Simulated scan of single mutants.
Amino acid sequence: MRIARSGASLSPIDVGDHVCWAAPPKAEFQRTARAYLTDGTRLGDKIMVVGPPSPAWQLDLPAAQGQLVDPAACDVGWNADALVSLVRQEAEAAGRQGFRALRVLANMDRIWPAGITPRQVADHELRLDAVIGGSAAMVVCAYAGTRFPPDLLGQAASVHPHFVGDRDAEPSFRVFSGGEDCWNVSGVVDADGAAAFHTAVTELLRTTSTLRLRCADLELIDAAGMRTLAEAAAAFPGRTITVENANALVRKCWELLSYDDPTVPVELVP
């Protein structure tokens, strides 16, 4: 599923999809969100809307099939980590309760606190993507452009496998879960996306000794992107990055820039 245009429908979204939605203005947002949830009721999904029922979220949910979760009303420590745990728990429960899947619409305006950083966004969304990939769930993370500056929206979009919204906000690359202990990289990593790529790789390296990046769908990584990759690996002594299935152009550029050096903790393998 790949949609990247203004006014796009969420209808193609299916089980296992994790979508960054650059949310449109209120009226269009409500219409599109309502259709997404209505599809869920028709297909027999368990529905969860995360975010308080503000005017922009006047969405009718069947009492037996859906729930609203208001982070502001939680008694203890709601944060982005809570969404990861909640999706995992509710996806497991949905199957036992006879639902086809868990269908989530998350209003990130209401989840992220003021002053959120690209690092926090990348860490949370990557962990959420790993959970979704191994469960009967689909999650749409709605990021309103009026609330999130371009760097945060770009970071969020780069760590989702799918993006819905205006093409101007679409990232040039994506990093997303490829299964246990493995991450896919697709698109083009260039100077414009180097900072977001560095943040994503750095957050993944914090939790593993060997980071596997599958790059069969990586079209190009330029000098800035390669430098970013080498610097991220060097910042974690004793940890390595394995780049799998890189195309001939990527491998050749890596050699020409002299990164195929044993002192660089990044290895390109077939």
Rank of each mutant, 00 (worst) to 15 (best):
L126A: 04
P161F: 07
G165H: 10
F148Q: 02
F99A: 04
R167Q: 14
A156L: 10
R103F: 05
L86I: 09
S85I: 08
N184M: 13
H160W: 11
R174F: 06
L105K: 00
A136G: 05
E92P: 01
R147G: 02
A157R: 02
D129E: 11
H124L: 12
T146A: 14
Q89D: 14
P113S: 10
A157F: 06
V84L: 07
L152T: 04
W112E: 10
G133F: 07
E90R: 15
G178K: 05
M108Y: 00
V139L: 15
V159A: 07
R100M: 06
Q120M: 12
G187M: 07
S158V: 11
P161E: 09
G187L: 08
A157C: 11
F163H: 06
A130C: 10
A157P: 03
E180H: 15
Q89R: 15
A101K: 01
F163R: 01
G179K: 08
R103C: 04
E170W: 11
W112M: 14
C182A: 14
D151P: 06
E125G: 04
E125K: 08
V164D: 02
I116R: 05
G165C: 10
A142I: 06
V104E: 02
L86P: 01
V159R: 01
L102D: 00
S172N: 12
R103E: 04
G187S: 08
R110G: 13
A101Q: 05
D168V: 11
G133P: 09
D168T: 14
E90T: 14
V188P: 01
G115D: 09
A101V: 01
A94R: 05
A156C: 12
F173I: 12
R88L: 10
L102N: 03
E92Y: 12
D168A: 15
F99T: 01
V189A: 03
V84F: 03
L102M: 04
D168Q: 15
A144W: 08
D151Q: 12
L105D: 04
E92V: 09
G115R: 05
S186K: 10
A91K: 02
A136F: 09
H162F: 14
